[in-house]
């Protein structure tokens, strides 16, 4: 799109529960500086944070790319993880395959994809077993 005002790129570290949330936190700060309203910041923060967590818990990290334009924020999360065998099941509220370690830290509520679907205007998931998953979310402003 020609009206993109800014693009952001982050590497999401594998298995690093201590840095998860950095990409979404930085993105939120950039959007705040650009003057987007609080509700847009909130929706982007929730959707992107959930995606980041999923990449750390289920895949071996990955990349997060953000395209910011006046009318929409597009977030693309790409990993080379195991893929999602049953997307329909994974989308269900409360369904989780998170590890005990992740659960002990307060993750694994089975709300990740559900929240992403709720707070993004568009959610597209492309996944292939053994190859990886790409999640594309659009949040309209």
């Amino acid at each position: 799109m020609s009206d993109i005002v800014k693009t952001l790129h982050y590497d999401v570290d594998p298995k690093d529960f201590d840095s998860v949330g950095e990409a979404s936190g930085k993105t939120k700060n950039v959007l705040r500086q650009l003057g987007f309203p609080p509700e847009v910041l909130r929706r982007v923060a929730i959707a992107m944070y959930e995606g980041e967590i999923n990449m750390v818990i289920h895949a071996n990290g990955g990349t997060a790319d953000v395209e910011i334009s006046p009318k929409q924020i597009k977030i693309t999360l790409k990993d080379n993880g195991p893929g999602i065998p049953d997307i329909e099941k994974a989308m269900q509220k409360g369904y989780s395959t998170a590890s005990e370690e992740a659960r002990s830290l307060g993750f694994g509520a089975g709300m990740g994809l559900f929240n992403m679907d709720t707070y993004a205007d568009e959610l597209n998931i492309t996944t292939k077993i053994g190859v990886g998953t790409t999640v594309e979310m659009i949040i309209r402003t």
Partner: peptide, 24 residues
């Protein structure tokens, strides 16, 4: 104490009470 619920249901300006203590 479940972070996804906090993300989704808490509001700006809230006092958040939890027993979680990690960096997240």
């Amino acid at each position: 104490d479940l972070l996804s619920l906090v993300m989704s249901n808490s509001s700006s300006g809230n006092v958040w009470v939890t027993v979680q203590t990690n960096i997240n």
